[in-house]
Design a protein around this nucleic acid. Structure first.
Lengths: 226, 226
DNA sequence: TAGCGGAAAAATATCGATTTTCTTTCTGTT
DNA sequence: AACAGAAAGAAAATCGATATTTTTCCGCTA
């Protein structure tokens, strides 16, 4: 990530790629609501581009479980539910546990430095808005796992991260989240990673997720109203 | 496939959906080779359809990790490697273990009947060609897991199944596979599931995968030549 | 002869218009 | 008043053509 992150989407990349990033952002942040119909024509005008890039971007977002595609009936933003949230939490716990252990097993100094750096950048941005904090938060979590030589696993984790963070946005602003002792929890995980203690690191990471899960479950309540 | 193939793809569904199924089949069976460039124009003529459905189908196949998309540089069939194979095997073991246990935990008579039925259908087709056997084989394996109330997990398992079976096709014909005691292994899993013994069922299922893995690793050798 | 632009060719990506499919509304009947 | 069926409207899907980008190939220079 660089300085002046947002609004930095001029003409780089293909129209499809830009549409992909924008739509993804809109869905994750809740700007496009769960279950909402995603009409090609509306989005086309909204993003000022053609129908093809939109369709293709939406097709790609289906991979990420952020968009549902119903043949001959268009696209819609993925639904949310308490069950879905639970499932994401469960899968994240399982898969990140796996990835983190593998990552630590392959530990190198270079990787360790990347993690420390990612943590520092996230810390530095902890007082700024979610717009700059969130990407760094994700970067930190992914950096923890990045040393696992398992591309598919990492892809799954990345997807689940996005699905999870979406619930944070849907549950309201993310300020409350940061009010919690998240900072300490992160530091704890980092410490265990630097100590190359897989059990402790995993324990702390999963604890972090469990707390976040309970926290969000509380905000969410039992049901979602569209 | 060949001239006048299954012909069982009339006009049902959208052109995109048909293209998706055909391309997927071609990649899984190795008709489109790993790493091969997938030129829109070639496929367009091959499947006798427009460029849009092809592009969209390829975009959807990226979800399944069967196609790689490089922005502004087109699509290609996913690469294969010994590491990739190992990873798939490892993830499958982990995730199917999870799913199978959850599935058994939620066991109902109706589900049990579906599993028995799927097994029977697969058995009945065990002497026929892979063309009819393979879908039933997949159906059986997915039926085992289907009772887990975890759509995302099941989707992952389904994807990993396809990725795995691709290696079987790439390693040569699937006849050798069936020569093994696969039939007995399947029966063993079924038995344990009917007995609702999660530990035994999982143990047998993972054993089945481990054997298949070793078997394929032997065929594959260390490297893949394009 | 290796390396370096720089056209020409090829392929991708995108657009605008058309066709097909779904959805809603309207109408006549029971 | 309720409902089936038809017709109009809306939206998705697809096509054909064009614009953009990447790749290839060739001649030039050092």
């Amino acid at each position: 990530m660089n300085i002046i992150p947002n609004d930095a989407e001029p003409t780089e990349g293909s129209a499809t790629h830009r549409a992909y990033l924008e739509l993804r952002e809109m869905i994750v942040t809740g700007q496009l609501k769960p279950g909402e119909k995603l009409k090609i024509d509306v989005l086309r005008k909204l993003l000022d581009t053609g129908a093809s890039p939109i369709r293709e971007a939406l097709s790609l977002l289906t991979s990420d479980n952020l968009v549902e595609r119903i043949d001959q009936r268009g696209f819609r933003a993925a639904e949310v539910s308490a069950e879905n949230f639970e499932e994401i939490l469960m899968l994240r716990s399982t898969l990140e546990d796996l990835a983190l252990r593998e990552s630590i097993a392959n530990a190198t100094d270079a990787w360790e430095e990347c993690v420390v750096l990612a943590h520092h950048r996230m810390q530095r941005a902890s007082d700024t808005g979610p717009k700059s904090f969130e990407p760094l938060h994700k970067a930190f979590h992914m950096a923890l796992l990045a040393n696992a030589k398992s591309p598919i696993l990492l892809k799954f984790c990345s997807q689940l991260y996005d699905l999870n963070i979406r619930y944070r946005f849907l549950a309201g602003n993310t300020l409350n989240y940061k009010k919690r002792d998240v900072s300490e929890e992160h530091a704890g995980v980092l410490e265990a990673v630097v100590a190359r203690d897989p059990d402790l690191a995993s324990k702390r990471l999963l604890h972090h997720y469990r707390l976040t899960g309970e926290f969000l479950a509380g905000l969410i309540g039992k049901g979602f109203s569209k």
